[in-house]
Design a binder for these strands. Sequence first.
DNA 1: AAGCTAGACAACCGCGTTCCG
DNA 2: TCGGAACGCGGTTGTCTAGCT
Length: 336
Amino acid sequence: MVRSPCEKINVKRGVWTAEEDRNKLAFGSKHGSGNWTSVPKKARLKRCGKSCRLRWSNCPRPDLKHDNFTTQEEDLIIKLHAAIGSRWSIIAQQLPGRTDNDVKNHWNTKLKKKLSQMGIDPVTHKPFSKLIADYGNIGGCQKPSTQIGSINKDFKNAMMLKSESHQTQPQEFRNTNDQPKLPPTSPPKIETTRTNFLFNRTHSDNISMDLAQVQGMPMMSDASNCLDFENGSVFGEDCLSKTSSPSIPSTCSTSAFSWNDFLLEDAFTTPFCDNHEHDMLMSKDLVSQIENVTRQSSDFQFSSSSDISFIEAMLDQENEMFLSFPHLMEEPSNLS
DNA sequence: AAGCTAGACAACCGCGTTCCG
DNA sequence: TCGGAACGCGGTTGTCTAGCT
């Protein structure tokens, strides 16, 4: 049996004591945070290097904030999450004094709930009403298999959109002189990476829900109250705190859901995954995208003439992707 | 006062990536 | 070039605490 490094004998686990923190801080301030495997020995800590590294990033350093997240910070997190997904370390870099764990915890405990209550899917950042509309006539006379197929496809596409939005952008939109640019609206190239598979699988429990639960959710008409088109912000200044709907269960299930549908559909996405060049391009684009989002959020001055909210921009990209890759929308002719 | 529950946060785990001999 | 070790990240779990019954 393989044991994790932190399970070795004489390696302490659990909450760090004040003394351990002192030792590690003293060592860190003296030597920095170089080789983590040697840190426990040198700092005389009975911890594994991994645990030390984690504690170093999360411990009460003087440069870390411990007050509540501001509305501006929340707004930025939401926008960055919409842009690049759950890359907490990158998002945290845009929030001075916050760690990736802070941001991740805040997202999981607060922001996801708030978005759901506003009628916005925290995974796709789309309004639930839009998702439902995309599913077509769920309550109609479609065959169950067809319904599931289209639901899965929609989410798959949403995930791909999400994924591609931070992975690829057309060459002409890439930034040549590090000046941030607005997100492109031309058809993006599609690729599938590990991220896609993770989204396809790990979020699947979030995306299946009973129709009754879906119908009970606040629709975009409610959520739109929070769309601040006046200044271009997706969320108004005080909108996040104005939630009154009952919270939505994070995990729901439908009797019709089948993992096989997801697993089978992965096969439709894999042919796009071979272009390593896009990975190289992605990093630059990602930086531009983050810079753009960060700049917009820090300015809090949006051109009303641009008037395209983040969600709208995402939806536009999705629509154009559908047009560019119509085969992704086709029903599998016969999977058996 | 005791028990229960939900929220917040700290820490762990597993996996992919990077580094280095 | 290859393989193992180390690192970094994101998801998940565990623990503590405040509030409620």
